[in-house]
Design a protein around this nucleic acid. Structure first.
Lengths: 393, 393
DNA sequence: TTGTACGCGTTATCAC
DNA sequence: GTGATAACGCGTACAA
């Protein structure tokens, strides 16, 4: 008898007595059913190779013992885990603990006592904060939903992770999955350069340089062009400023097309975007206030994201300015919060679910053949102009 | 030299030549860095035990090779995967492919060609269907968000799965995680009885019988009571019907409290709920139509979920009836769609994010000590009455 | 501080 | 059809 079997036999005996909740293994099931471990494995992976009687005997024993095959062992033996991953950098953590951004520790999310026995009062749940449509669902959430939907349809588990831009963080995630989709960050993390060699990877953005990653992205230029054409052509607006940040490639593309579109209409763009960087104090707040104080506010603010646009609307309202009567404000992304704001937000909607689904199919190898001569997928989705109230329509 | 090392050396040579994208292992890194595999492992798990020079040399080699430690191997060695899981039964698949329910195959979700080269047109993305607030975010999505948030804060990966009510499906998920949270289903799957023995499990509902699972749930009775008190006391309504299904324990609790509350007010409840079963044709549709045709519509419909309520409002509108003028309609859950409907929906909101977070903390062993004499957590959250337009307010 | 050797639970390849 | 056994890659006790 092999050493493993010996060990297991011994442990099993112990388990029968004290039941220390050790997870049962093939050895335990094999012993219970009076077969070899190979038959146990076959009963789950190749049922047709076993006699009906044997298979039933094995499955019955497995049921009795509460046996669940270890995915870790299977992954090790097969060389693949079967799961697809979706990784976000600290981006998400910022949302996770709204209080962490502010200085006061009191605003941190509550952790009600769960063993208390009584009903946990509403006030301990922070539901007002967590359920704010401004915080959920966002761009990442809709992408994630599409990714998860497609994975479910393909019968594959999804692993969702988040971490910092470090080798360890990204490598840890990469070590758990067969394929990895990564959300864009402002500065595309350097850690990425070591992951892809061995694992298929999709980025939800254009990357700064040439690399082997698949791409799933939106036609930023087409979206901004449609938006500016609407503002200029349908509303006759000619003084348009851009609100955003240029750290991300999406932001750069959108700002670039803002410049190009205005020039195409013979208008003069503002050479620098109004900075919407979030770190520390919102720079958008001080810059917008400065423009208002100087009486230099443009007729329209074309914002790089819906979140910037909603923040701008708040700010303008607080200063007594009306949107769209005094200033037109538009967004980009098409998150749900833009349907709930006052006024409702004119924006460029990305087909986020479809993009998430595309990423999953690429990683699962279900995306069809690569185009001739291409080493990777580069799926570019058309966005759609969504006209609501904030542009004056 | 051990057999493993021999194999790896051989493979590495092959890799250097043809680069068949085999994932690098500790052996590869050790060889590159000129150290033993133990040092490689230490460099990642116990950095302090290594000389700075050695550690850096190892990490550099790992970077160069694109090494990511295999979670499968680590999980096998340690006996734990480190991940927490969230499992849904076919529930989700129904949402995944709206076309699958209908008979016509044309309504299935599109799968645009991704290697085509051009921009994928908007019409291929099904965005109108997928982004409908009626479909997302729902109860499960908000729970999931809370679960993921808490896991992220604890630095744990999340695994999201979906499957049928079979031993294999639930066991497969259970084999991948250290703890498992499970969404309620109408009939609590029998497969559950074999999982928990070895893995901590949380159910988001009351279960029918006595079992070892942890619970995270809402105070259904308190919620319905507050709602009915509002309808009777503030609006003077006395003919109230209940819309729902009794297959789930949540539904049963809510219906039970509907009966109790009406009796407490001295009113006569309808002994049977209006059946909102979805299978096949919506029975709610035919039953409501029958009530309308018979002139037997009650003054108010208290629905077991927001989704039922929204469907009822659609139906009543289609028949030319006004909500709330002709019939009052209320929901339960507090999903976002209830803020976007016409009229906006009066409902009982569950603190879904908080419930998802509670489940994650319980599974991670971060929920504090168990109450005296209890073998499991049973966290009951208070819901909150959200008064909007559909009740006549 | 670093290296060696073994075990983790499964799958797959062979004999029988 | 069933059983024995060798990988799979990592963590770690123990030896050096």
């Amino acid at each position: 008898m092999a050493r493993e079997a010996a060990r297991h036999e011994e442990d099993t005996t112990m388990t029968d007595a004290a039941a220390p909740a050790r997870r049962p293994t093939v050895y335990d099931v094999a012993q219970q059913a009076g077969v070899s471990i190979a038959s146990v494995s076959f009963a789950f992976r190749h049922p047709e190779r076993l006699t009906d009687a044997t298979r039933e005997r094995v499955l019955a024993a497995a049921r009795r013992l509460g046996y669940a095959p270890s995915a870790a062992a299977r992954g090790l033996a097969r060389g693949r885990t079967g799961t697809l991953g979706l990784h976000a950098f600290d981006l998400m953590l910022e949302r996770a603990d709204p209080g962490a951004r502010a200085d006061d520790e009191q605003s941190a999310v509550h952790r009600p006592t769960l063993g208390g026995g009584g009903v946990i009062p509403w006030g301990m749940t922070d539901d007002e904060t967590l359920s704010d449509p401004r915080a959920f669902p966002l761009y990442v959430d809709e992408i994630q939903r599409g990714f998860a939907l497609e994975c479910w349809m393909m019968g594959r588990p999804v692993m969702v992770t988040s971490g910092s831009d470090s080798d360890v963080s990204i490598a840890d995630t990469a070590g758990r999955v067969d394929g990895l989709a990564i959300f864009p960050t402002d500065a595309l993390p350097s850690a990425l350069s070591r992951v892809t060699v061995t694992i298929p990877t999709v980025l939800f953005s254009v990357a700064p340089d040439d690399d082997p990653y698949h791409r799933v992205r939106v036609d930023n230029r087409g979206g901004i062009r449609a938006l500016i054409d609407h503002l200029v052509d349908d509303h006759g607006i000619d003084d348009i400023a851009f609100v955003g940040r240029l750290e991300s490639t999406d932001g750069t593309e959108r700002f670039g097309e803002y410049l190009a579109s205005l020039r195409r209409w013979g208008l003069r763009p503002r050479p620098e975007p109004i900075d919407a960087t979030v770190k520390g104090e919102h720079r958008l707040i001080e810059q917008l206030n400065a423009l208002i104080d100087a009486g230099a506010l443009p007729d329209a603010l074309v914002c790089s994201t819906d979140q910037h646009a909603l923040l701008a609307i708040d700010l303008l309202s607080a200063r007594g300015l009306r949107v769209p009567e005094d200033v037109v404000v538009t967004g980009f992304d098409g998150i749900l919060a833009g349907r709930l704001s006052t006024p409702t937000l004119t924006t460029v909607r990305q087909p986020m679910e479809a993009m998430g689904r595309a990423a999953a199919r690429i990683l699962a190898g279900q995306a069809g053949p690569l185009p001739d001569g291409q080493a990777r997928f580069d799926a570019v989705f058309a966005p759609q102009l969504v006209v609501r109230r904030s542009c004056g329509c």
